[in-house]
Design a protein around this nucleic acid. Structure first.
Lengths: 226, 226
DNA sequence: CGCTTCATGAGAATGTTATTCTCCCACGTT
DNA sequence: AACGTGGGAGAATAACATTCTCATGAAGCG
C-alpha cells in the first residue's frame, strides 16, 4: 500500500531511483512467473471440473494436471478454498457479461430485465448436462462458510441488475417505494435459489418451476391488483 | 427376501401361527430397543449441536455422548448423513407447526400469510445467537447433494403455505392465474434463501434485507401497478 | 567464478474424519 | 451346555487437505 518513496522515518534519499527500478523489475518478473503458475493451476482445475462436472476434485489432481508441485500450490493459494473462490469469481464475472450482452439486445427496460432474469434462471439451474458445478456445488457451500466472499463475488451481477432496475425505474416502470438496488438484490437471490431447487430442466414429475413463472412472480408478486 | 424354508414358492400354512407370533414378539422387542438407541443418538447429536452451534460435530462425539458404540451407530444409521437428515426433518416439522400456530392468530388470510412469511424469514436467518445450524449449515449442503430428501423434508412447510395461499385465493385476495401451490413453493424458496444471505439480524453496514421488504417483494412484485 | 538465496519440484509425514472390520462378551434359546 | 445374536471397544482403513523436509537449479552478487 504505502510506498517507501516518501522520506519519513527511513532515509529515502539513500534509496536511489535506479535501485527502486531494479527491485521493481525483479519484483515484476517474479510476479509474472507467479501469475503464470497461478494460471496453470486455475486452468487445470477448470479442465478437471469440466470433465468431472463437480468441484470434488482433489488438490493432487490439480497439481498433476498442471505439472506443478504441492509445495507450489500452497505457496500460491491459501488452500483449495481459495482456488475455488478464484474460479467462482471468474465465472460470476463471465456470467454477468453474458447476461448483460443478452439484455442489451432489447430496448424496453422491462424486456431487458426479463431477459436477464430468465437467463440467470437457466444458468443457475442444476443441469447435469451443462457443466456449471461452481454454481450448483460450490456457491451454496460457500454461502454458509464465507458469506462475505459470496457477496463480493456476486457484486458484478448485483451491479448489472441494479443498472437494469434503475433504468426501469427511470422509465417509470417500477412501482414507487423500494430502492432499485434492493429490488435487484432480492430479485437476484430469488431467481438464483429458485433455480437451484427447481431440479434439472427436464426430469421431475410435477413441480419444475419455469423461468416464466419466476419472472411472473418477481415482477408482479402474488396479491390481487386492486 | 425369499424364504428358504418353503418348498413351493409360498407355503403360508407351513408357518404355524404361534411361530409367527413368536417371531413377531421378538421382532417387536428388537424394534423397541432399536428405537431406544436411535433416540439416544438423536438426542446426543441435538445436544451437541445446541452447544457448539454447528453441524460439524464428529460421529465420535455423538457416540461418546450417547454412551453407545461406533458399531451400533452404523448399524442404525447409514452414516452421519442420515442422522442429520433425521434431525432436519424433525426440525422442519416443528418449524411448520410453530408457523402454523403463529398464523392461526389472525383471521385475515393475507395477514396469516404475512405472519407466516415473516416468521419463516426470521427462522431461516443465520443468527449466530439462536442455535439453528440445521437450517443454516446443513440444509444448503443437503440441497445440492440430496435434493430429493430436501424436497421431502420441506413437504410440511409447503403444505402449510399451500393451505394459506389457497385460503387467500378463496377469499379472492390472490391475483388470478398462478396456482396457489406454485406461488407457495416460490414464496417459500424466496423467503428462506433471501433470509440465508441477509446476514445476521444486527450486523452489516448497509444491506440487511428485512422481513418487511421480503413480504412486500413477494406479495407485490416490482412492476408498476397499472 | 564460487556463494547465497529463493522459488520449485518431489513426495513423505501429519491430522482429521468418516467408515469398516475384528474380537469378544453377555443374553436368551434350544 | 452349545449357540446365535445384538452390541460394546476400539483398531484398521481410506481419503483428503495441509504441512514439512530435502534437493535442485537459476538468478543475483561480489
Amino acid at each position: 500500500m504505502a510506498q517507501k518513496t516518501s522520506q519519513p522515518v527511513s532515509t529515502p534519499s539513500e534509496e536511489p531511483a535506479w535501485k527502486q527500478r531494479a527491485i521493481e523489475r525483479s519484483t515484476q518478473a517474479a510476479k509474472r512467473r507467479a501469475e503464470q503458475r497461478v494460471e496453470r493451476f486455475l486452468g487445470a482445475a477448470q479442465a478437471i471440473m469440466a470433465e468431472k462436472g463437480t468441484t470434488d476434485f482433489t488438490v493432487q489432481e490439480v497439481i498433476e494436471r498442471s505439472r506443478q508441485s504441492l509445495r507450489s500450490f500452497y505457496q500460491h493459494f491459501d488452500g483449495k478454498h481459495e482456488l475455488l473462490l478464484a474460479l467462482f469469481e471468474d465465472a460470476m464475472n463471465r456470467t454477468a457479461d453474458q447476461i448483460r450482452a443478452a439484455a442489451s439486445g432489447h430496448s424496453d427496460p422491462l424486456d431487458r430485465l426479463k431477459v436477464a432474469v430468465q437467463l440467470l434462471f437457466e444458468l443457475s439451474r442444476p443441469d447435469p448436462t451443462a457443466q456449471r458445478p461452481l454454481f450448483t456445488d460450490f456457491a451454496p457451500r460457500l454461502l454458509v462458510s464465507h458469506p462475505a466472499e459470496v457477496k463480493f463475488a456476486h457484486a458484478p451481477l448485483l451491479t448489472l441488475f441494479t443498472e437494469l432496475m434503475t433504468e426501469a425505474e427511470t422509465a417509470g416502470r417500477l412501482r414507487p417505494g423500494p430502492k432499485p438496488r434492493r429490488l435487484a438484490a432480492m430479485t437476484m437471490q430469488t431467481v438464483m435459489f429458485n433455480a437451484q431447487s427447481s431440479g434439472a430442466p427436464d426430469d421431475e414429475s410435477a413441480h419444475p418451476i419455469t423461468a416464466d413463472e419466476i419472472w411472473d412472480f418477481c415482477s408482479r408478486g402474488f396479491t390481487h391488483t386492486r
